[in-house]
Amino acid sequence: MDAIAWSTAGPAIGASFVASMVEVVEAFTIVLAVATLRGWRPAISGTLAALAVLGLLIAALGPLIGQIPLYILQLVIGILLLLFGMGWLRKAILRAAGALPLHDEAAAFAAESAELAEQARRQHNSMNWIAGMAAFKAVLLEGLEVIFIVLAVGAGRGLLGAATLGAFAACVLVLAIGAIVRKPLSQVPENTLKFGVGVMLSAFGVFWTGEGLGIGWPGGDLVLFGLAGLFLATGLVMAGVLRRPRAEAVS
């Protein structure tokens, strides 16, 4: 891969890796809650069933993407990335400024455990079935986001392999750490990761939307780094500005 190819592949792998890590950590918390309550059998069954559905989805979507004209694909993916990435960036800025509470994996684990117990009591169904379905739903919903991220950062310029590599590495890393610690990964700096992902996906969104509209970016792929820098600087300034009135109000 030459220097220019790496300038696009690098951000694609990085964005896919970090974004997937956030999603896999969230799915892992729920799968772990299921395993803790009912053992690994329903947790693994639900996870494998969801991965099978996600695999079918990829198999169905993959050939379709090849049929879409490139500029339309870039425009649609660019707009979806702007909606998704700027949404993440907005939330991360608000969390960094203290306007929104931080996501807490330990609290999510406790809430999921309580919800599972309550559902079993209310519905009088087999607890293993409910637990398996909870794991299935968590992996399916978080996996959908991972698939979107991989398609979004990879499909616009034939980088699906690179983006998939990033997502796969994130899954392996989270599962490896999870297998060792066997508790919710609450030490993961989730908002910092989401801030970074929001910045990268927003930069990709502007880049692909522009390409789809026929805008020739000066510097080609390298403009991605400049776009990411602009979003990062704006996000950090906003977090600082919005945090100040809160700090002054407290003092």
Binding site: L82, M86, R90, S202, G205, F231, G235, M238, V241
Partner: peptide, 10 residues
């Protein structure tokens, strides 16, 4: 895009 992120977060 930068203006939008500033306005919506503020």
């Amino acid at each position: 895009c930068l203006a939008i992120i500033v306005v919506v977060t503020a």
